[in-house]
Amino acid sequence: MSVAEKIYNILSIRQLLYVLLIIMVLIPLLHPFGIPISISSRVREVYKYIENLPDNPKVLIEIYYEPAAATELEPAVGAILRHLVAKNPKIVFVSLIATGPIMFERLKSYVPDVFEKLKYGEDYVYLGFLTGGETACASLARGIKEYVVRDNYGRPTADMPIFKYANKAEDFDLVIIASSGTDVFEWYVRQWFTPYHVPLLFVALSVIAPSIEPFVAAGQAIGMIVGQRGAAEYELLIGKPGSALAAMDAQSFAHGLVIAFIILGNVFYWIIRLQRKEIPGR
């Protein structure tokens, strides 16, 4: 066995990659380096859109993710909320996924400064988890308080002042969908944008972005904030660094490791093939 083959075999041990990954993520978390990041035009456009919203904007926020995805989505939703709260918004939170209520409570503790400024029932409300998927999404567009008689905490929605301003799809200035799946984006495009032309903003996992990119390109959404990186850029724009910005060094280190492994794997693969006189492509 040649030296190249031995190295290739060592590199193929997956446990080695995992150990190195743990080390590469731990180092910048324990000792942040503050590697500078640039702000993409896409995130800047979203920022400008929210900046140009009228005072007291009516916003619906769909919380559609699980605890695992919170690392990527929560910082983005938190940063947007911090930006929105300066405009005295009316916000209706809703979840079409069962983990939504846990995630909403987490969000409240992630940005307590935002919720301290908002009064429940008047400035914001959480409808809780609604079953029915796309059917529920369509029903919300027709009239929220008629469809959801009691909110997540069992309080009657009929008496809540917020629904005087934000009840039907036509009332809303923006719908923000924070999701770890693809389906819910499609539901809102079909049930809120196409019939009522309500502007949509996508907050998505990095892995989801290529799937929803066509909606943004076709103008069916005003833009999207993608993953931890997008959230970090938004945090920079609003001047309030959060957990996403803190994680950027770890992201860079981990990506560097994966790139190094891809390059090394390919180099040794070709060396071995050339040593064995295997001509590629034949």
Partner: peptide, 8 residues
């Protein structure tokens, strides 16, 4: 990117 973010 997503998996690394989850891990972080």
């Amino acid at each position: 990117m997503t998996r690394v973010a989850f891990f972080i």
